[in-house]
Design a binder for these strands. Structure first.
Lengths: 204, 204, 204, 204
DNA sequence: GATGAATGAGCATTCATTCAT
DNA sequence: TATGAATGAATGCTCATTCAT
């Protein structure tokens, strides 16, 4: 039904907001249901457990963000620079439109890493998929001669990801609110910088 | 007394280990005391609360790492490149010798950010102190003409920090264990890369 | 719902019994829930805290006893002696029907007095309301010329209350069980005596 | 030793103060030792347990107050009115000089009654001894013809005690501080009233 | 006599989850 | 589908008591 989806979606949305500011373990099901305006039982009708909400969030991130950015790059018929621009464009726009989803993911990383849970497993999958995408992209740049031979694409792919992960945390820690001008400036700068890393001068 | 310090230190050490793998909220006082081989009450003799353990960890990080790296840079009489090398050397060596302390900090970031707690306050202080140090360093490079005029040191300082934060999380997520060759390789690569960002060719 | 009231009422009832014999601080929530035949969590579904149970008991005492006896006296259109009889009748019957409620109040007095808690505040309200009622009653007797001019109604009202408070403790200490003939005898004697204090010969 | 007595006495004194405002169970040994300026272990060197402090307080009350007032009455060679005056004089002066000891006793009554503890046993002994003393006194008044035949001395002795117990609680609840003029006025009034109860006009 | 670090049973409270309605 | 009262294991923390120094 349509109503169903709305309720489930609302629970998910409020969960993301809550996890964002209090962490996964720090958020109670009561807080989620209160925010969503439903009863406790309703949450458990839509999700088997609190862990399943976490799983749904990661699934959403995997499908919408990683899947989306992967499709964008894969389906592009352009060369490395074109693909890289598309890659960045998708990331920027997705972050702008789904900032909270981006943020929870980064925020939950530290809390879940090392927990040996199903969620950690999923995070590794996500991370690997993303890293692999970037590495493949960099390799293509290498093949085209745009990126010099001595760049270790494996490491550089991971550094790029790291810089992005860390940046979300930084924004959040510094800004508190996250839709500031600072964020936009940061994003632009990091894009250029990341390319400079690998020796590509873009935008000129 | 000497014994006293040892017990308190042991609790702190085991807390770091535990927070690292299960997060702050995910770690119980029982787990900490069991690991430290002391009774529940002993923890509360040395610390007023679980929160105070967290505070002690952040304090340790602030004093030993941020304080140490700050002193290193401030006390150096070298030019930008020399200072930057010293900055990196301290960071690398400290990470090697106190890897868990470095990791908990990064790991706890996401869990604490947004919590409006005393710990978040302290994290902001730490972050600002560190960012400011890096920015000042980059500014010096600019004055010396090593870094080009159009580099926004405010942003770049924060990107550097972000890359480092993110890298710790990545190592931890990927490696599980953290004293691998990969970590060393990563550290070296990131050092060069960070300098390339700001337009400096080092090591040659 | 009806069921709801029953469970909450049962917890309250068992709390009264428990506080009566072990004091407030000496009673554990385990004891209350075991006696009420509910799980630990159920207590906290109906009451926010153990303190709130205490508050509910005092509220009950204030509403049912002090409110009731106040209404009885206020609504009576009789003269002083008639009102005093009604006052005593209500007190005796209420004590007979709600002996435990009367007893906990007196029993908790000493434990709570001086604690600077919300409960102590409420006790002061109760005490003042009750003392004021008695004083007003005695003042009426004075106006009617039944009580002599030189009686300090302020002090006498408080002595009356004191005698009653003390008597409940005495019964409880001496009798252990509290529905004895002794109690009835004591009550009758104290009634006459209290009137003799203020110079009124009743019952003849 | 002399020093020993001083320390033990100080612990006792601070315990009385503490029990008075927070009750027996509400007072921690830490609070007592902090107030007394000694270490935790010192308390346990002088007293076997916290309960033993309570016992020492009751013992002190029994010996100094009940014993004292009993001796006063017994050793007096006067008639009923003279003895009654002496009885009241001792009580008033003792209360004035040892107000806190008087107050703890009354304050602890409700907390301990019904606890089936050793302390409750002792309280019963104290209460009986005191009640018996008063009753014997009233009986003597009866024999002298000062108190009318139809006065039930058993009940009246207990009412007198009750009025006194209750009065201490009232003072404490109303006044907060307890060395006010009000207390003195109260005491004088109750003395006259108690005698009027049994039909004796004193002081004129 | 005195100290205070260490102990661990016990406490009030929380919270994910269940289930009858 | 939705509710919310009920559950009870688990948690952070307290505190009387012990004991090596």
């Amino acid at each position: 039904m349509n109503e169903d989806k709305k309720v489930k979606e609302k629970i998910l949305e409020k969960s993301i907001k809550a996890f964002l500011s209090k962490g996964f373990r720090g958020t109670t099901t009561k807080e989620i249901t209160s925010a969503a305006g439903v009863a406790k039982g309703t949450l458990y009708w839509h999700f088997k457990s609190k862990d399943e909400i976490l799983d749904a969030i990661l699934e959403k991130f995997l499908k919408e963000f990683v899947g989306g950015i992967s499709d964008t790059v894969t389906n592009s018929s352009e060369n490395f620079v074109g693909k890289f621009k598309a890659f960045f464009k998708f990331g920027s726009e997705f972050s702008r439109d789904n900032l909270e989803l981006m943020l929870v993911y980064q925020t939950l990383l530290g809390e879940i890493v090392g927990s040996k849970s199903k969620a950690e497993m999923k995070m590794k999958v996500i991370q690997n998929r993303y890293d692999h995408l970037v590495q493949t992209l960099l390799d293509e740049g290498k093949k085209e001669g745009v990126i010099s031979e001595d760049v270790d694409t494996y490491i550089h792919a991971r550094i790029m990801t790291a810089a992005l992960i860390g940046s979300y945390l930084q924004w959040y820690l510094n800004a508190g609110s996250y839709d500031s001008e600072y964020v936009r400036l940061y994003a632009m700068t990091i894009r250029k910088t990341l390319l400079k890393w690998v020796g590509v001068e873009i935008d000129r």
